[in-house]
Computed example of a mutant assay.
Amino acid sequence: MTDTAPRTGPTFHGVTEDGDRRFYIFGDHRLVSCTAVTGVIAKDALLRYAANQAVAAVFEELPAIVIASRIKPCGNTSHRCDHDNTIRCDACACRECKTCIANWLAERHMANTARRADEGTRVHDVIEWWALHGEIKPYDDDIAPYVKAFQAFVVEYGLTPDSFLLSEALVVNRGAGYAGTTDGVIRIYAAASQAAAKLVSRVTGVPWKKAAKLGLTVDLVIDFKTREGEKPRFYPEQALQLTGYRHAPIVRIKNSDEEFPMLPTDGGMLVQLRPDGVTVRLAVTTERTYRRGFLYALGLTKWLIEEGPAAVSAHTFVLPETIAARKRKAAKEAAAAVPAEPAPAAA
């Protein structure tokens, strides 16, 4: 992987979530995930997706919605019972009244988002297995279109498992305060195929036929994206995510505390897997993008986490009289905590 000997880093305690933000825990440090950083960017497409999911559900369940409009709220809509969903109790939401149905419609996109995330995880598992073992492991029918798209990508660019210099690696930047899991680093050989030669040409500026003849290569940080819809679609925050991975100085070996310097790379690449095919898109992951894009988003994320709540808290601006009273109280408590000096001995 590199000539530099590995060193042992602090113990990795896993990933935790706080609301919709993800953090990587190393020892006593909590590092913001790259996906949490890009999450501060407004995503109009997701808003439209959520609205479209609710509209689709209305038409699918129109009779039930009409009936629900005539049923008074059960009063338990927001209650979450601890027991199994197959069990019903008096505290359970009825799922039939107007309020319950409205809540279900509003959250319809969340169930689909969870489903899509699960599909993406399983697709990535198949890709990682191929990179490590050179074969496609058994997979579920629902992700078959994405696996086939990945196989088409492999063929088009003449890839082998050895093309993966890294696969599903944890990258860490303690100085900046973030971490993330990259899908890997891939070496593209210009001589492998015409598509590979043209990709190398776009990165190096060398005409593609000459690049193939010279046997040029480029190493790219890669991110696989699954997209349920047809036709390719990419977003700027995806480039920022790749940029964070590329500029992290440390790579951590999976399931260990061993760390290496990040591999030098020539850029970043998005590979979108869809039911109708695969699209490869180079992304700008330069030092400028890192400093003017990713680090700005990281700073905003940290501010929102560390200082944002206090910026609008009723307890932030305190009356001077209250501050003075608190100081007097603290002084009294401190004086009371000091043990009394023993009385002088009698002459």
Score class of each variant (00 low, 15 high):
53 Q>H: 12
50 A>Y: 08
116 R>D: 06
223 D>W: 01
201 S>P: 11
14 G>R: 03
231 K>T: 04
280 V>K: 09
251 V>G: 04
142 D>Q: 15
265 T>W: 08
195 A>N: 14
27 G>R: 00
276 D>L: 09
199 L>Q: 11
44 D>G: 07
290 Y>F: 15
241 Q>G: 15
22 R>N: 01
126 V>P: 06
325 A>V: 00
286 T>P: 05
175 G>A: 08
304 L>C: 06
338 V>R: 06
136 I>Y: 14
74 C>N: 01
248 A>D: 02
52 N>S: 11
265 T>I: 05
191 A>Q: 12
309 P>E: 15
271 V>R: 06
42 A>H: 06
312 V>Y: 15
141 D>Y: 08
184 G>A: 13
276 D>H: 11
168 E>T: 10
39 G>I: 15
202 R>H: 11
72 K>I: 03
212 A>I: 12
131 A>Q: 14
194 Q>G: 10
21 R>D: 04
286 T>Y: 07
80 R>P: 00
42 A>D: 05
76 N>E: 00
213 K>S: 06
20 D>H: 07
189 Y>F: 11
238 Q>H: 15
73 P>D: 00
260 F>Y: 10
160 T>P: 03
267 G>L: 09
236 P>A: 03
345 A>S: 03
25 I>E: 00
53 Q>C: 14
153 F>L: 02
257 D>M: 09
311 A>F: 10
82 D>K: 09
301 T>Y: 00
220 L>T: 01
196 A>R: 04
139 Y>R: 12
30 R>S: 01
10 P>L: 02
62 L>N: 00
209 K>D: 04
285 T>Y: 14
253 I>P: 02
255 N>F: 12
202 R>N: 11
51 A>V: 13
346 A>N: 05
65 I>S: 13
273 L>H: 14
155 V>E: 14
142 D>K: 08
246 R>C: 10
